[in-house]
Simulated assay, not measured.
Amino acid sequence: MFTVEMRRQFKARQGLASHLWQTSGRPPVILFAVTLRAAFEFTGDQLDEDGRFIDTDTLEQLLDDYADRLSTTMWTDLFDQRPTFEFVTKWLYEQLAQHIPQLAYVSLDNDTIGVATTYRAD
Results as ranks from 00 to 15, higher is better:
residue 116 A to S: 13
residue 28 P to E: 05
residue 120 R to H: 14
residue 90 K to R: 12
residue 7 R to L: 13
residue 10 F to G: 02
residue 54 I to F: 15
residue 48 D to A: 03
residue 64 D to V: 01
residue 51 G to I: 01
residue 55 D to V: 07
residue 74 M to N: 07
residue 63 L to E: 06
residue 23 T to I: 15
residue 46 Q to N: 04
residue 52 R to I: 00
residue 39 A to V: 05
residue 61 Q to F: 10
residue 98 Q to L: 13
residue 83 P to C: 09
residue 107 S to Y: 01
residue 36 L to N: 02
residue 51 G to R: 13
residue 86 E to C: 03
residue 34 V to Y: 10
residue 37 R to T: 05
residue 76 T to G: 03
residue 115 V to D: 11
residue 11 K to T: 08
residue 53 F to W: 12
residue 94 E to N: 10
residue 62 L to Q: 03
residue 110 N to Y: 06
residue 6 M to P: 08
residue 21 W to N: 08
residue 86 E to P: 00
residue 45 D to M: 10
residue 37 R to P: 00
residue 47 L to I: 09
residue 61 Q to K: 09
residue 48 D to Q: 03
residue 112 T to R: 11
residue 7 R to K: 13
residue 34 V to C: 14
residue 48 D to F: 06
residue 88 V to E: 06
residue 65 D to E: 08
residue 21 W to Q: 12
residue 15 G to M: 04
residue 40 F to T: 10
residue 37 R to G: 10
residue 14 Q to M: 13
residue 54 I to Y: 15
residue 4 V to W: 08
residue 1 M to H: 02
residue 75 W to L: 12
residue 15 G to L: 03
residue 2 F to R: 13
residue 30 I to F: 11
residue 73 T to I: 14
residue 66 Y to C: 00
residue 65 D to Q: 02
residue 102 Q to E: 05
residue 34 V to Q: 08
residue 86 E to R: 00
residue 44 G to C: 00
residue 112 T to K: 12
residue 29 V to A: 03
residue 101 P to E: 13
residue 56 T to H: 11
residue 52 R to Y: 06
residue 31 L to A: 05
residue 60 E to Y: 05
residue 10 F to M: 04
residue 17 A to T: 14
residue 7 R to T: 14
residue 75 W to S: 09
residue 53 F to Q: 08
residue 14 Q to A: 05
residue 85 F to I: 07
residue 119 Y to M: 04
residue 101 P to C: 10
residue 42 F to V: 00
residue 25 G to V: 07
residue 82 R to Q: 12
residue 66 Y to W: 04
residue 76 T to A: 00
residue 17 A to P: 11
residue 68 D to A: 08
residue 50 D to C: 11
residue 31 L to D: 03
residue 71 S to Y: 05
residue 28 P to R: 15
residue 100 I to E: 09
residue 48 D to M: 02
residue 118 T to F: 03
residue 44 G to Q: 13
residue 64 D to L: 01
residue 108 L to G: 05
residue 32 F to A: 05
residue 22 Q to Y: 12
residue 118 T to H: 01
residue 95 Q to K: 09
residue 27 P to M: 07
residue 24 S to P: 01
residue 122 D to T: 07
residue 63 L to Y: 12
residue 64 D to P: 00
residue 44 G to E: 11
residue 46 Q to G: 04
residue 113 I to Q: 05
residue 115 V to E: 15
residue 62 L to Y: 01
residue 118 T to L: 08
residue 102 Q to A: 14
residue 60 E to N: 14
residue 90 K to H: 08
residue 13 R to Q: 15
residue 111 D to E: 15
residue 27 P to G: 06
residue 15 G to E: 06
residue 111 D to K: 07
residue 31 L to Q: 07
residue 34 V to F: 10
residue 12 A to I: 09
residue 98 Q to N: 08
residue 57 D to W: 11
residue 83 P to R: 04
residue 72 T to A: 10
residue 66 Y to N: 01
residue 87 F to V: 04
residue 26 R to T: 03
residue 54 I to T: 13
residue 81 Q to K: 10
residue 51 G to D: 00
residue 64 D to Q: 13
residue 91 W to M: 04
residue 1 M to E: 06
residue 26 R to K: 13
residue 80 D to S: 07
